[in-house]
Each structure stands twice: as C-alpha cells, then as structure tokens.
Design a protein around this nucleic acid. Structure first.
Lengths: 236, 236
DNA sequence: GATCGAACCGACAGCAGTGTCGGTTATCGC
DNA sequence: GCGATAACCGACACTGCTGTCGGTTCGATC
C-alpha cells in the first residue's frame, strides 16, 4: 500500500507550468497544486496523449496509460474528451497546424532558391528534432484499418502537400512543371517523404550531426529539382 | 444456425491452388478439398495473415480475422504457429526476402548508371504494384511500442539499406562519397524512402500512369545523385 | 466560514481478443 | 473396408480496455 497518492508523480514538467495553474499573486510557494484548473489539466492531458499516441499508435495506446502520464485517473479524461477517438483527433489537428506553420515561414522566406531549399530542409529537421513525438504522430503510417482515421490522416497529408505545392509553385514552375499538375504533386510527395525518411533514420542515429543530413538532403534535392529542366540556364 | 460450414468461402484464389492441395492423379474434379494438407493450409494461413496484418497492423489484426480469411477457425492457426507474434514474424521475414531478391536483380543489372537507376526505380514500383500488401507490411511504420517488433523491423530496414548500399557502391563512389560512410547511408535512406513515399501516394491515386511516377522519380534522383559531385565530368 | 461548482476518484458492466483443451471426423496407408 | 494420424472445431478461462456512474473533496467566492 503506497498510502498517500503522492501529489504528482513528477511529470517531467513540460515546461513552465500551464497557463493558469499558478496563482501569481500569492507568492507563498504552494509546492504543487493538487487540483488543477480545467484548461490546465486539459493541456496536460493533450501533452500526455501526444506522447502515448506517438509511441504506441492509436490502437495500442490506452486511456489508462494516458491518464497515468497526465497524473490523473481515466475518468478525468472523459470529462475533457468524449472518447478516445476525439482526444486523438484533437491532438492530431493541433500538431499538424503547428507543423504547417513552422514550415511555411522557411519555404516562403527571403533569399535565392537554393538558399530557401536549404532553409526548408533545415526547418523540417528543426521540427523533427524539437518535436520527435509530433513527427511520429504525423508521419508514421499507423492507420489500423479504421476508415475514419485513415481518411483524416490522408486529408492531413493532402493538405500538407498542397500547402507545400503552393509555397513552392515558383520553384516547380522554374523547373519546367505546371505547378498545379500531378507531376508537381508527385515531386512534392517525393521531397517530403525523402526528408521524413532521413528524419526517421536520424531518430535512430542521434549521434549523426545535423549538418551532415542537411547538406546531403539539400544537395540531392536541389540538384534533383534543378536537373528536371536542363534547358534552362542556371541563372538565379 | 448456418448448417453446413460452406466448404470454403471462396478466398479469392491467391493463384493456382497451393502446392499439394490437389492430388493431380485423380482427375475427377473434387470441387474443393475440405480438409487440406498441413503445408497447404499453412501457406493459406500465411497469405491470409499477410493481408490482414498489412491492412490493420500487428496490434489491430486479430487471429479470428486471419482465421476467417484462411477459411478455418482460430484453433487451427495455433497448430501451425505458436503465437500471433510468431506468425507475424514469419510473414515479415518471407516478404522481406522476396523484396530484396526482387530489387537486387535490377540494381546490379547491366547497362549504364542512368539506365540502372531507371531500372531500379521501375523495379520498386513493380513490387509496389504487384504486392501492395507486402509493401505496406514492410514499409509502413506500425510499431506499437513493442520493443521486440520494433527491433526486428529496424533490423530489416538496416539489412535492406546495407544491401542497397553494397549494390550501389560503385555509383555512390562515383558521386564522390565513400560508399561505406554514413553519408552514403543517409543518401540510400533518402532514395528508398522517397520511392516509398511516392508509392504510398500512388496507392491512393491508382489512376496515375506508372510512367509519370517513374520518369519523375528517376529524373529527380538521377540528377540529385549526379549533382553531388559537380567536379566529375559526366562521361559514362 | 458556509456554499457551490467542478475536478477528481473507485468501481462496474460489457466487450473483444489470446491461447488452451478435449473431442470429432476427414483422409490416407494398409 | 479399417484403423490411425492429424486437420479441424466449439467452448472455456483469462486478461485488458472502453465508457459510465455515483460519490467525495478541493478551492474559489460571497
């Protein structure tokens, strides 16, 4: 019998505590707030869910494990999210939005085409390094024959691809492709999945310096894109 | 009560029937052999398992569903494979061997480098088109936090990558890389995952003609590889 | 300090899946 | 034809998970 339920099992502190968890006025160090406000607890649950879903996939993740990671019992989860599925979709949407926002600034940034290619590659590896769990959740193919989840996931992928297509329209056009053709779409799919493949590999070889990956990926993809239309002169 | 268990629910006939299912001597059309020989049934089970595991992933696939697809009850599965896990690993190994064998002939075939690159790309799309289920099983990241399965899967991936590295050693060297360096490894990972990314996309856009994909992928990857070492002259 | 909302908990019902076991019957060798 | 091997089945015990419910106690407000 472990008697006292121990205020909080030291949940790694996802950062400074959530928004309104600490009343900033009373400076008197309440060491841990046993009972959090609704929104704060909700944030914690989403963080925990991201971790567990990312590690196990949707099916193998259990609400019990998520609850434990969030420092709470299962019942509490159901007060914030109607079902496991709703929780999953919420997390998925949030993380995807974060990714798209993160990438956008790099792709459409200033600088020459080659510079932006390098920046784009760097931005993706940035994201993969800073949010390895989110990367897995978004890219690893863990549909379990569930039609709805599969559809949602492909919707997200499609949105992502289209966004990159739009952002790189100028570049694909310069490579001699109609930027809205399926040729261009295939090209973008190739770019994205090659980057993610390298990121996957990186996650298992964390000692490899980032510069190695970036240089290699940016080099290959740059030459590959450039070589598509050998007629054009290489002037920027 | 559905009375007669119905000889066989017409399991799509995976091809001409399994090896020894039909005694070739007695030409007298026994329409369906109700009770198959051990090895024949085992083959059917493996085929069914491939389909179900591929569609659902390891965790979400149930022995009941595999049994049904194999035209048999669950108990029979356990007479051929000790556990679900053993069945899964068996199928995984078989399919991976098939893939490596299939790719090998294309990569190390005759012809110039550019020709072989195109042949390699074509070989992969061949495989993806002919064995979509095997492709999913081998490439889609469906580890569910299971340490053993995860290890096995990465072992397979590593083996595959090393094999391709060896087969393309001449090409990577010509591109200015040490063919056993981690640079080369990253390059190969990039090649493989970009191809598979396109194959994934293709599976959702089956109307796209193969030539489109092949030309695009081979073009980008060829230029990308070639552009890595701009110092070399392009003589074959 | 009394009151009220809501954050939290333990327990329950129901379901789906795995692996096991004893019994049944098709099919092959004699 | 007859017996033995083994392919096959139905049922069972057990486990783990989801979603629900009634009750408890923290903490903010008046």
């Amino acid at each position: 019998m472990s008697a006292l339920p121990s205020p909080e099992p030291a949940p790694d502190a996802t950062e400074a505590d959530a928004s309104e968890a600490e009343t900033p006025g009373s400076a008197a160090r309440k060491p841990v707030r046993r009972r959090m406000s609704g929104p704060a607890r909700r944030r914690r649950i989403e963080d925990a869910a991201l971790a567990v879903f990312s590690a196990k996939g949707y099916g193998a993740a259990s609400m019990g494990e998520i609850a434990e990671a969030a420092g709470v019992t299962r019942s509490v989860l159901y007060e914030h999210f109607a079902t496991k599925r709703v929780l999953f979709l919420t997390v998925l949407g949030t993380q995807n939005a974060a990714l798209v926002a993160h990438m956008g600034t790099a792709i459409t940034g200033r600088g020459g085409r080659r510079t932006r290619m390098r920046a784009t590659v760097a931005a993706y590896f940035d994201f993969a390094e800073a949010n390895p769990t989110a990367r897995r959740l978004l890219f690893d193919q863990t549909d379990e024959g569930d039609p709805e989840l599969s559809a949602v996931r492909w919707g997200i992928r499609q949105t992502r691809t289209r966004a990159v297509m739009a952002m790189m329209a100028h570049d694909t056009e310069r490579a001699g492709l109609d930027p809205r053709s399926s040729d261009a779409e295939v090209l973008i799919e190739l770019l994205i999945s090659s980057l993610d493949g390298v990121a996957q590999w990186w996650a298992h070889h964390p000692d490899t310096p980032r510069a190695t990956l970036e240089t290699m990926a940016a080099g290959v993809l740059w030459s590959g894109l450039e070589g598509l239309n050998p007629r054009r002169d290489p002037a920027e």
